[in-house]
Computed example of a mutant assay.
Amino acid sequence: MEQLNDIALDTFFTPIFMKKNRPAYKLSVICDKEYEKEIEKIIFRNTTTIGVRKYEVQRDILSRRAEKVYYEDMELYLKIVNFEDEEYIYPEYESAKKLAKNKNIPIKAAFEMIKDIYRNIDLLSK
């Protein structure tokens, strides 16, 4: 999965049942067409699969920008996303995880804390 995440847009597992009710996992990978063959190589080398199903999809993405805030000697990363005159703040998971561990707080609280840190910096700069 780590190798796939280096070049894919997203990867995820879904628990499924195969023929004869055998439990399995379906690996889904979303990638740009240019990485298709590299993705297949990784899958065939690292799994027991003997086939890959491929579907083309369209993807719409919102405008976004990456931001970095500092809190107690930590660099915390987030994305600011815009949709129809609204702005949404999405802290990066690894930053929230680092803050949660550092402050010994739940990760949900760390996500909210990063949003608050960014909002307060944004208010101070106006």
Rank of each mutant, 00 (worst) to 15 (best):
I30D: 02
R53M: 12
I43C: 00
N104L: 05
K115Y: 07
V52L: 08
R22V: 05
I117M: 04
V29M: 01
E36A: 11
Y118E: 04
K97L: 10
K37L: 06
A96F: 14
R59I: 15
A100S: 15
I16K: 07
D116Q: 13
L62M: 08
N120T: 04
K68E: 12
K101H: 08
T11Y: 03
D60A: 14
K103W: 15
D122T: 10
V69E: 08
F44Q: 00
E92I: 05
L124G: 03
L124M: 12
D60S: 12
A96L: 09
L99E: 04
K101E: 14
S28H: 13
I7P: 00
Y88P: 01
Y77M: 07
I80F: 07
S63I: 11
N21A: 08
I16Y: 07
Q58V: 06
N21Q: 14
K20Q: 14
R53T: 10
I61Y: 04
I121Y: 14
E56M: 15
N21G: 09
M18Q: 09
L78E: 02
Y77V: 00
S95C: 07
Y71K: 04
C31H: 07
I7K: 03
M74V: 08
A8V: 06
K108M: 02
Y88R: 04
A66M: 11
K54S: 04
R119N: 12
K101P: 01
Y88G: 00
N102H: 13
K126M: 10
Y93E: 06
V57A: 10
Y25S: 14
E112W: 07
K79R: 11
Y118H: 11
D122G: 00
I30E: 00
T48E: 08
G51V: 03
